[in-house]
Structures are given as C-alpha cells and as structure tokens.
Computed example of a mutant assay.
Amino acid sequence: MTVRLHDGGTEVRELFLPAAGARIRWILLNPGARDAGPARVFVHGLGCSGASDFAEVATRAPLDGRMSVLVDLFGHGYSDRPADFGYRMREQADAVAAVLEHEGLRDTELIGHSMGGAVAIELAAARPDLIAKLVVAEPNLFPGGGFASSPIAAQDEEAFVAEGFARMLAGHKHPDSAARVRLTDPRGLHRSATAMVEGTDPSWGALLTDLDRPRAFVVGERTLPDPETELMAAAGVPVVEVPAATHNMMIDNPQGFADAVGRALGVAEAG
C-alpha cells in the first residue's frame, strides 16, 4: 500500500513480512529526490515513532534535499503490533533491512537514536551492503538498559501490560512525550526494554567500534559528561554535540540536531 500526501512529496508505505506475520510501515519524505544522493534512513527510539522524532529535522537544512525513510519499528507508530514477535534489536534490524530491499536502496546513510541506535548498529554490522554511513545519537551500547527501559523491564510483562503501561503514561510530566508513548504497544514496549537490558554478545558498543563503515556518535550537550561518549571517542569514533539538548535532542533542538547530523555525516565520510 502507498498513500501519497502533499502532492507526492510524502508517501506512507507498508510491507507484509511473513517472519513477523505483520506489516511494517514507513514514511518516504521527498521521494522525488531518490536520485539526488544516498537516501537517509531514520530509526527512532523506545516508545517513539519515525514521524514524531524525525519528520521535522529531516526537512531542515542541511538534511533536506534528499529522500528520507522514516521507519516505524514493529510495536511503534503506525506499524503492526505482532503478539508473537520478539522485539529484539536484531529482529527489528532485519525488518528495516527488508524495507530497504523493498525500496531497492543500497549505500544509505543510516541515523538511529537511542534504542534505534542499537537497531542501526545491528543493521550496519549485519548488512554492510545496505549502509554506507552510520550516525548514532546516544544509542544503547551495553547491557543494563537506560533511564526509560530499565524501569519497564523490571516489571513482569503481564503486569506491565495490564497496569504498568497506564501508570507510566499517567506519570509522564511532558504531554508531548506521553503522546508519543501512547502510540506504542505495551507488550512490544516491555519486550523491547527487556531486550535492551539483556543486551547482546558482542555488545552494540563493540559492534560500533569494530564497524568497517564510516560512523559517528551524536550526543546532547546536556548529557555530558558521559562515560559512554568518552569511551567511543577514545575508540576513535567521531563525536558531535547538539547544543542545548538532552537525550531527546531532536525535540529539544531540532535545528541543532539537523546541523549535528549533517556534521556527523561529513566527519564520518572524512574518517
């Protein structure tokens, strides 16, 4: 299915994946620019969606002028919520790879934030034929989870689905954050959080440092000092800061995030 919006400037597409028994959906921004250069693929974080996190920044200079692919991971946004899906990062990465193959895309520029950064690392490591450059923004790098995933994973899955999810929404202090999370499947959210707490072997941090593709690490200025950022810099991964931003950097400072990703792509190329 393809839905065209804004005179063909935006398309919403979907693909049925037999392995998941479900349909994954994504937004194409500026599809008429398919031949203008490598497509940019954006992968959102836990409890978010492609549109909520990246629709604004992908259309700002210096990121405009290219076709952008805003993927909704399974259990998030407009994609299906398969009850039997594991929601592990490699499974999500395989689904994104299927989207890129369906679109006939190779040598893309892949940008992933938070959990989406871990998914992006998995994808770049497993399918280097699809990815020319990788930019990750405060990704999950090691087991243990983060400030959002750890409290979710600490709960029993059924209890979280029955009560914990609603309690979490009620406790959100920022309406825009609650609105994003509300679109997420509670079971998928819990399994995703659990997968991040459990991590992988080798870790996403090890996969990133060993990656044989140009890559860069984006961090919010207000996140610093940050041990994981220091570790990546020491390992030779270029680091770019987003001014006046926390972990939710594309929300805190959309133009700053667009500028930082643009610089990161340039630094990755130079590296």
Rank of each mutant, 00 (worst) to 15 (best):
D210G: 15
D210L: 05
R222A: 10
L224Y: 00
P214K: 00
F217P: 04
R215L: 09
S203G: 10
S192Y: 03
L189Y: 13
R187C: 00
P202E: 06
T184K: 07
M196W: 12
R187G: 04
G205Q: 03
F165Q: 05
H172P: 00
D226V: 02
A179Y: 03
T184W: 01
T229K: 00
G220M: 12
M196R: 04
V181A: 00
D212N: 14
G220C: 01
G171S: 15
A195M: 08
G220D: 02
P202Q: 02
A195R: 07
P214G: 11
G188N: 09
A193L: 02
T229N: 05
D201M: 13
R180P: 07
D212G: 07
P186F: 04
V219F: 05
P202F: 11
P214C: 11
T229D: 09
H172D: 01
S192M: 10
L189Q: 09
L183V: 09
G188H: 00
R167F: 06
R167S: 11
A206L: 02
R187V: 09
R215M: 10
D201H: 14
R182G: 04
D185M: 06
G171A: 15
H190D: 08
F217L: 15
A170R: 13
A178S: 12
G164I: 07
H174A: 14
G188A: 09
R191F: 06
R182A: 15
H190L: 07
E230Q: 13
E198A: 15
G164F: 02
A195K: 04
D201F: 13
A170T: 05
D212K: 14
A178V: 11
G205E: 09
M168S: 07
A216K: 00
E221H: 12
L208W: 02
V197A: 07
A178D: 07
T194A: 15
A195N: 04
L207K: 12
T184S: 14
A195H: 01
D176A: 12
V219T: 06
D210P: 08
P227D: 01
A170C: 12
V218A: 03
R187I: 06
R182Y: 10
S203M: 10
E230T: 06
T200R: 12
R222C: 02
H174K: 14
D201V: 15
G220E: 10
D226T: 02
R222V: 01
G171T: 05
P214E: 08
F165C: 12
V219S: 09
T223C: 11
R191K: 15
D212E: 15
L183R: 12
P227Q: 04
L211F: 08
V219Q: 08
H190E: 08
T184L: 05
R182K: 14
T184G: 02
R215F: 05
G205S: 02
A170G: 14
L207H: 00
P225S: 05
R182E: 14
M168H: 07
M196G: 00
L211G: 03
A179W: 08
S203E: 09
D185Q: 12
V219R: 07
P202G: 11
S203D: 12
G220L: 01
T223I: 07
G220F: 02
A178W: 03
D226I: 02
L208R: 05
D201L: 14
R213M: 01
G199A: 09
A178P: 11
S177C: 06
L224K: 02
G199T: 01
A193K: 03
G188D: 07
H190Y: 11
K173G: 15
L207R: 11
E221W: 10
R191Q: 13
H172L: 10
E230H: 08
R222H: 08
